[in-house]
Design a protein around this nucleic acid. Structure first.
Lengths: 347, 347
DNA sequence: TCTCTCTGAGAAAACCTTTTCCCAAATCGC
DNA sequence: GCGATTTGGGAAAAGGTTTTCTCAGAGAGA
């Protein structure tokens, strides 16, 4: 009786090079060389071996290859961004850059737990990852685990790098400039800035750029309103900006899309039209929020997928032994224009 | 001159068992047995070897172990949920269940691209993953790649399983019951249902449960309103439900949190109080939306982390050769009560 | 003293592939 | 016809670990 169709599935053993060699009537050495285009043999022999391999469905065992080459074609992505709001687009970029090189990615969420972080890092090292990409949910914080003296190269993307390491982050100041300059071009004159908590470095970076652009355009600078990264704070900020008797803003540049969403909702409740009376621009370009906002939200995109791609490539060249310039490299943002900022005066 | 501090970092070669053995003055066989608690030797010898290993910072090469054991302590997580809304919580559960067994997870996003899917699957198989967990963004669709005849076990979580496979999904009907029954207990009598597109199986499953609960409670059943998974549709649905002259609902059970958010915003614009006039419950418990809603949204949580944990454990036992019952297993949802549904009459 | 049984530890095979070195036969130059 | 080179292909080591055998010596029983 052969295997019963009802029984637990039995998983076929993979075919090895030895079997291919035997089937083709050659040695494993010759078989290996035939498949890798190495060594010397008649075209006929090579072709015969290749056909046999194809017929048998031979696929080389990566484990054996890795053991020999001291290279596993595997990297680890370490993150503490549980919701994946930043790390997932980044991961997509990393994966995109690496998959064509046959490199797979271990994703490890370490929360903010040092023990968990160490556990994951050791597991990755034991599995002989070629390198590690560290990422997080904010640029100005370290992961809860020290990666500075590992046996493998590390690239930091969207998180604080250890000294002397390679770091890739978004150019937040540049992103803020994009937004504020866009308002200026649209003819807005009283541009306010509502952002997140002052404990975030990017808050100050963006605020600085905001001030700079206003001064360059000879516009009045109002003090940025710092609060939380939430819709609720957006509401609150509108109360402060539009509740008094002073001159009201005709544009609000927000520190993230949730604040922007709150701002827009609050403006609507006050009967203030967006974008006709007041233009609004957000940050992060979190599509699910930006597109659900009424009107759809113009927002600064940090190009996280590109950031991930660059991180992947940087790690790859580090793995290949090419020294990369240490230090932080900033990658440009882009402005995604939707309908919340208004059109040019003549448009 | 030794290595310059300024030069590119040179990465230390890991120490091997052979080196430990040499340092301890024993053979590799003895060293291996000492570290694994196998074989027979004096306690003194064992302790000496262990100390040497600790001193040298020896960690066994997983690649070599995997090659020998035919077990890589690695699994692949395949998904087409780019934004990770469903797959990330699931991944967290999977990882949580596996990390303590020393198993790492390859995350592969295949989008809806068959070629990419095959690429990832082949890479995983070449790397000798012990098994694969397939997940997606909806329960009633297959991933763009066929996993039914692989050499490794596959568990399907939150995606359509191939026939004869092990599948884990949320109990959507049960989740819907939780919501509607909660409304009934609160004394709501005219409960409407606004959900997503009819092309989704879960839409019908939940609608069926909704109808059943109403009938069990002798309440009038109004036809569910099916549309899109968006806030905009929530707005629109409110116009239909509250625009006419008929009896108006005193509760709305929504197919997801975005619809619920749209419903609540639209109700506010009409001056209808939530939860006093109308209670609202959402689905998915997407915290970032549910908590930003005013008032915070009561929602059905699909317990995706538990689902992931179960999937991880199921895969592990399959890998260990224990036959798991094929077919779809449904895991219960839970209701997360916030403030949008109101309190019990006496509360 | 002789055999028998433990005890402690090492040799070697196995996992699978790649690569270096080597060898026999064939070809070439003269 | 003889040495030198090329050609086609194989043997073996390497990568790091685990496990099964094997074996020398020590102690025990007779």
């Amino acid at each position: 009786m052969s295997a019963d169709a009802e029984s637990a599935p039995v998983f076929a053993k993979p075919v090895t090079l030895r079997e291919v060699a035997a089937a083709a009537g050659v040695s494993v050495a010759t078989a290996s060389k035939a498949l890798n285009g190495q060594g010397r043999m008649t075209a006929e022999t090579r072709e015969r071996i290749r056909n046999t391999a194809r017929l048998l469905g031979f696929r080389p065992n990566s484990l054996a290859q890795s053991l020999l080459r001291r290279r596993s074609f595997t990297v680890g992505l370490l993150t503490n961004d549980t919701y994946g709001r930043f790390s997932l687009p980044l991961m997509a970029g990393v994966s995109d850059a690496l998959v064509d090189n046959g490199v797979s990615v271990f994703l490890c969420n370490v929360e903010d737990d040092t023990r968990l972080g160490q556990l994951h890092v050791e597991a990755m090292l034991d599995k002989r990852v070629d390198g590690i990409i560290a990422t997080g949910k904010r640029i100005d914080r370290h992961l809860p685990v020290d990666l500075s003296h590992l046996r493998v190269p590390v690239v930091y993307a969207f998180t604080q790098p250890d000294s002397g390491a390679v770091g890739l982050v978004s150019d937040d100041a540049g992103g803020a400039r994009l937004a504020v300059e866009h308002f200026c071009r649209l003819g807005r004159r009283r541009i306010a800035h509502v952002s997140g908590p002052p404990s975030f470095a990017v808050v100050h970076e963006r605020a600085e750029a905001y001030r700079a652009v206003l001064e360059e355009n000879n516009l009045a600078v109002t003090e940025p309103l710092l609060g939380a990264w939430s819709e609720a704070w957006g509401h609150e900020a509108v109360a402060k900006l539009f509740g008094g008797k002073g001159k009201r803003p005709d544009a609000v540049f927000c520190g993230n899309d949730q604040i922007a969403r709150g701002v827009i909702d609050a403006l609507r409740e006050r009967g203030i039209a967006v974008p006709d009376d007041v233009g609004v621009i957000g940050f992060d370009n979190w599509e699910i929020v930006a597109e659900a906002t009424r009107p759809p939200l113009t927002s600064v995109d940090m190009n996280l997928a590109s950031l991930g791609r660059e991180a992947g490539l940087a790690l790859l060249s580090l793995v290949d032994g090419q020294p990369a310039a240490p230090g932080i490299r900033k990658l440009p943002c882009r402005l995604v224009v939707r309908q919340s900022c208004g059109r040019p005066p003549g448009g």
